[in-house]
Design a protein around this nucleic acid. Structure first.
Length: 555
RNA sequence: CGGGAUGUGGCGCAGUUUGGCCUAGCGCGCUUGCCUUGGGAGCAAGAGGGCGGGGGUUCGAAUCCCCCCAUCCCGACCA
C-alpha cells in the first residue's frame, strides 16, 4: 500500500471528546471515526487490525472444534419472550417494529437464537457436543457508552456457544475455550490474566474473564503475589480468608464521644443499602469495604444503592426493619466500636450476638491488595485490567426455558448443557492500544498491527532515495511482508511523526547515506533500536524479526 | 438514570461575565506559488463558519431569557 493512497487521515491535534489513550490515539492515527455516541466507523487501518485479530480468533476456535456460522442481527421478539428476557433486558435492548407492527430487536447477544437453532437440529446425545461461533456486530443501547471503542453501543464480538450432554461435557468444552482464549491473547502479544469472575444472577457454575492488563482499565483484579500459586480473580469475585482480631473485652455497651483514636480493625462499619427487597445493612470491619456484588448475589437483589443515614454514623444496634448481613469477620461474640446513629458519638463494647444479631453471616467483603491469598496465604496484588473476553458456564438456563432437549442413551429427555464464550474484538483492539502506547503514538504488537513495516524515503525529491525505497517496498511485498511505502511528498519529520502515531512495528528509512554506502536503517517502534543494514538484506532481516515476535505458531 | 461540563470553519481554541467596535478572531490543517528536505519548516496569496436547533427580550444577540438536541466526564449500571 502506498501512503499517498491510504485513507488514513491523521490528526495533529486530539479531538476534544477523547479522554483516554486508546480513544485519542485511534482517532488521531486515523483508525476510527465517530458516527454517534458509542458508534464508530472503522477506517482501513482500523478494519485491518480487526481482521488480524479475527484471523487469530478463527484459527483458535477452529482448532478446538468450533464451526463458524452467522446468526441474524435482527431477531423476532417471540424468542426473547420465550426466554423471558424481552421483559427483563430493559432499555439496553434495541427494539424496533417491522412494517406489520411486529416486535423485533437487534441482537445484544445470541443465546436465544442459537439455542432455537440447535434445538431444531439436534435430537440425540450422539450429535453432541456442538460448538458453534460467529463474529459479528452486537447492539446494546448502553446507559453510558464511553471511552471510544471500549464501551460502544455497536461493537464486534466473537461469541461461541457450546452444547453438551452433561456437566462433564460442559467442563470439557469450557476447558477447550479456556485454552483457546489463552492462546489467542498470547498470540496477539497482549499481557493478560485469566481471572475468576462473578457469574452473577445467571447462576452459572463458573466463569473466567480474560483481562488485558492496563493501568487505566475499568476492572480491578487481584492475583497471588506468588507466581507458582496462580490464584487470580476479579475483585467482584475474589475471596480472602477472614482474619478475626483477638476478641476484645466483653464489657457492657457504652456510648462515648468519638475521638477517632481507634484501631480501624476494631471498628464495625455499617453500610446501609436501599434495595428492591427493602433496607439492608452490611457490616464489615472498619478497614474493609463492602462488595456489593456479593451482597446482591447473597440476597438475590436486583438493585442495591448505598445510602447515607444516621448522619453517616449508622450502627448495627437497634436497626428496625432492616436486613442485617455481617461479613465472616464479624464472628459471634466479637466486640466492636460502632456508630451510634448520633453525630459525633459512638458505642464501645458492642458484642455481636448480644447487642445485635445479623440475619446472615457471609462473605461480603471486597478483597484488595495485601489481603491473604485463599490458596496459599501470600499477600494478594492488585491490578487494573480491561475485560476482553469471558468464558461462562450457562448450564441449562436457556435450554430449559426454551425447551432445547435431546434424547439420552437411556431414552430420557434432557436439556442441553450450554456454555457461552465471548471476545470483544473491537474492545481487544482498544485494549491493545491502552496497554501499549507512548506519548508519540500507538505501539502495536506485531500480530495486530495493520501493517508490519513502513518504508520512508527521507527526501521525497531525491530520485535515488525514492527509487530505492520503491525497490525495497517491492522486495518486501515479494517476501510476504505487509508494507506501506510512504511516497507522500512530505518532509521527513511529517512522515516520522505519522509512522510513530500509527504504530508500524518497523520503519525502514532510506536516507542520504544509502547512496554512499548502500545502507538503510531499520527502526523498531517497540524498543526504539535502530539497525543499519545493506538495503538488499532488509526483507530477510525483517522477516526474521517479525517471525520471532509473533509468539506461538499456528502449528 | 442522578451529578458536572461543553457545543463558534475539517481539528484545537478565544470572544459570552459587563449585548453594539464581531455580517466573528487566532493556531493547525486545506488550496496556489516560491523556497526547504533526517523529527509535524519558512514566506506570500487564498478558500472556508454567522456562532448546536427553535422560540423570545432588545433599536441591536455568539453574548440575556425559555425550551429542545447533541457530546464528554464522574456515579449508578454492565450477558
Amino acid at each position: 500500500m502506498r501512503a499517498s493512497q491510504l485513507y488514513a487521515p491523521t490528526l495533529r491535534e486530539t479531538p476534544a471528546e477523547a479522554e483516554i489513550a486508546s480513544h485519542r490515539l485511534l482517532l488521531r492515527a486515523g483508525f476510527i471515526r465517530k458516527a454517534a455516541a458509542g458508534i464508530y466507523t472503522l477506517l482501513p487501518l482500523g478494519l485491518k487490525v480487526v481482521a488480524r485479530i479475527e484471523k487469530v480468533v478463527r484459527e483458535e476456535m477452529d482448532r478446538q472444534g468450533g464451526q463458524e456460522i452467522l446468526l441474524p442481527i435482527l431477531q423476532p421478539a417471540e424468542l426473547w419472550l420465550e426466554s423471558g428476557r424481552w421483559n427483563v433486558y430493559g432499555p439496553e435492548l434495541c427494539r424496533l417494529k417491522d412494517r406489520h407492527g411486529r416486535d423485533f430487536c437487534l441482537g445484544p447477544t445470541h443465546e436465544e437464537i442459537i439455542t432455537t437453532l440447535v434445538m431444531g437440529d439436534v435430537r440425540s446425545y450422539r450429535q453432541l457436543p456442538v460448538l458453534l461461533y460467529q463474529i459479528q456486530d452486537k447492539f446494546r443501547d448502553e446507559k453510558r457508552p464511553r471511552f471510544g471503542l471500549m464501551r460502544g453501543r455497536e461493537f464486534i464480538m466473537k461469541d461461541l456457544y457450546s452444547f453438551d450432554r452433561d456437566e462433564e461435557g460442559l467442563a470439557l468444552s469450557y476447558g477447550k475455550m479456556y485454552e483457546a482464549y489463552t492462546r489467542i491473547f498470547t498470540r496477539l502479544g497482549l499481557e493478560f490474566r485469566a481471572v475468576e469472575a462473578d457469574s452473577g444472577a445467571i447462576g452459572g457454575t463458573g466463569s473466567h474473564e480474560f483481562m488485558v492488563l492496563a493501568g487505566e482499565g475499568e476492572a480491578k483484579v487481584v492475583f497471588c503475589g506468588r507466581e507458582e500459586c496462580g490464584y487470580a480473580a476479579n475483585t467482584e469475585k475474589a475471596f480472602s480468608p477472614p482474619r478475626s482480631l483477638p476478641a476484645g473485652e466483653a464489657g457492657s455497651m457504652v456510648e462515648v464521644a468519638a475521638d477517632g483514636d481507634v484501631d480501624p480493625g476494631r471498628v464495625l462499619k455499617t453500610v446501609l443499602f436501599k434495595t428492591d427487597k427493602g433496607m439492608v445493612a452490611a457490616l464489615v470491619r472498619g478497614d474493609r469495604e463492602v462488595n456489593e456484588i456479593k451482597l446482591q448475589n447473597l440476597l438475590g437483589l436486583l438493585e442495591a444503592e448505598a445510602v447515607r443515614a444516621g448522619g453517616d454514623n449508622a450502627g448495627p444496634v437497634d436497626l428496625a426493619g432492616v436486613t442485617v448481613v455481617a461479613d465472616l469477620e464479624v464472628t459471634p461474640g466479637s466486640v466492636w466500636v460502632t456508630g451510634s446513629g448520633r453525630e459525633g458519638m459512638c458505642l464501645t463494647g458492642v458484642q455481636c450476638g448480644r447487642d445485635f444479631v445479623p440475619e446472615h453471616t457471609a462473605d461480603i467483603r471486597l478483597v484488595g491488595a495485601g489481603h491473604p491469598c485463599p490458596h496459599c496465604g501470600e499477600p494478594l496484588v492488585e491490578a487494573r485490567g480491561i475485560e476482553a473476553g469471558q468464558v461462562f458456564k450457562l448450564g441449562t438456563k436457556y435450554s430449559a426455558k426454551l425447551g432445547a432437549n435431546f434424547l439420552e442413551e437411556d431414552g430420557t429427555t434432557r436439556p442441553l448443557v450450554m456454555g457461552c464464550y465471548g471476545i470483544g474484538i473491537t474492545r481487544t483492539m482498544a485494549a491493545a492500544v491502552e496497554q501499549s502506547h507512548d506519548e508519540r503514538g500507538i505501539i502495536w504488537p506485531v500480530a495486530m498491527a495493520p501493517f508490519e513495516v513502513v518504508v520512508v524515503p527521507v527526501n521525497a525529491k531525491d530520485p535515488f532515495q525514492t527509487n530505492l525505497a520503491g525497490e525495497i517496498y517491492r522486495l518486501l511485498n515479494e517476501a510476504g511482508v505487509e508494507a506501506v511505502l510512504d511516497d507522500r511528498p512530505e518532509r521527513a519529520g511529517v512522515k516520522f511523526k505519522d509512522a510513530d502515531l500509527i504504530g508500524y512495528p518497523y520503519r525502514v528509512v532510506v536516507g542520504s547515506g544509502a547512496q554512499e554506502d548502500g545502507q538503510v536503517e531499520i527502526y523498531c517502534r517497540r524498543d526504539g533500536q535502530t539497525l543499519r543494514v545493506p538495503w538488499a538484506t532488509v526483507p530477510g532481516a525483517l522477516r526474521e524479526a517479525l517471525a520471532s515476535t509473533t509468539g506461538l505458531n499456528n502449528g
